[in-house]
Simulated scan of single mutants.
Amino acid sequence: MNETTDTSDAGLLDIKLLRLFELLYSTHSVTRAAEQLGQSQPTVSIWLARLRRQLNDPLFVRTPSGMQPTPRAEMLIGIVREALRSLRQLAIAQAVFDPATASRRFRICMTDASHVTLLPQLLAHVRASAPKVRLVAARIDGETAQALQSGEADLAIGLVPWLESGFYQQVLFPQDWVCLVNARHPRIGAKALGLRDYKAEAHVGIAGGTGGQLLEAALARHRIERRVQLELPGFLGLAAIVATTDLVATLPRHIGETLARTGGLTVFPCPLPVPPFTVKQHWHARYHEDPANRWLRELCARLFAARGQHAPKPVRRMASR
């Protein structure tokens, strides 16, 4: 199908002709106008001829005192200057986000593990640098993609592999798997946790978390059926449960080590080979250049990128073929 041109725009003046009009009006000289435009005098003369044709008026007439405007040029100079002022503002205008004075809400989709591991640190930095900013923690679920696209949510942090075309992602840190046990566990204690122990002990299962499918797939692949005596919807209360029972919890390292520090628990490498994954931040392409969104992303990258490393550059996801 052939492209069509909107004929209503055919008579619009080129911005260089508007600039010439303004310079001729203020300098009364084709030579000085050419110098300020960085063009040769013959080129500017050609532009002036085009301008006269388009506006159907001589516009500027040569006199002993220089190029003087015609009545029509006098009538148009205000319109020309306003048009140039608007175009200049359009060229330089860029929304600015000043965290020190900004008053807005950021909605971040994250797992409840991130409520424990990431949110306290993020909140502390936001309160220090952007005291009027509010944070809202939302779930990662089937509505996350639409929320990011519509602007209802600003960012998603975690394992969100179903976000594809139209989304950017940036790696923050890697995750492998660990097991938590009571520091006074009657059979495991401080010794290494082997696969035989893992199979023999009772477990607490965590249904929440987007990485849970990796664990379940690894259990199925190795034909291991855990004896799960308690199942929790998330990580709330997990540290207290493990600290007061002999149950074993299998979970990603970041949340595992955080709970271990606060609950006096012992951390072991998971004896079951579960695939590692990376925690990333995700945002929609519509907001890639938005200064407020960029500030939030850069803050998260600075806070949560793997220790001693800079977060890799963002990558835009493309639709799967």
Rank of each mutant, 00 (worst) to 15 (best):
N2K: 14
T4K: 11
T4C: 09
D9C: 08
L18A: 11
L24P: 03
S26R: 13
S29M: 07
T31S: 12
L37D: 05
S45C: 07
W47I: 00
L48H: 03
L51P: 03
L51V: 02
R53G: 06
Q54P: 02
L59E: 01
R62I: 03
R72Y: 14
I77G: 04
V80D: 01
R81E: 13
R81L: 06
A83E: 15
Q89W: 11
A91L: 06
I92T: 15
D98V: 11
P99C: 09
T111R: 01
S114A: 15
P120Q: 10
L122K: 10
A128K: 12
A130F: 09
L135H: 09
R139C: 08
D141C: 04
T144P: 07
A153H: 13
G166E: 00
F167S: 00
F167H: 00
Q170E: 03
Q170C: 00
V171A: 13
V171Y: 02
F173G: 02
V178C: 13
V178E: 00
C179V: 12
A190Y: 08
R196K: 14
Y198K: 04
E201W: 01
V204Y: 00
A207F: 07
A207L: 10
G209S: 09
T210L: 05
T210N: 09
E216L: 13
A218V: 10
I224M: 05
R227W: 02
V228Q: 03
Q229T: 06
P233G: 02
L236A: 11
A240N: 09
A240H: 08
I241S: 03
A243V: 03
A249L: 01
P269W: 07
P271S: 10
K280D: 05
H284R: 03
E289Q: 14
D290V: 09
R297F: 00
C300D: 01
A305Q: 08
G308A: 05
G308M: 08
K313N: 12
V315H: 07
S320Y: 10
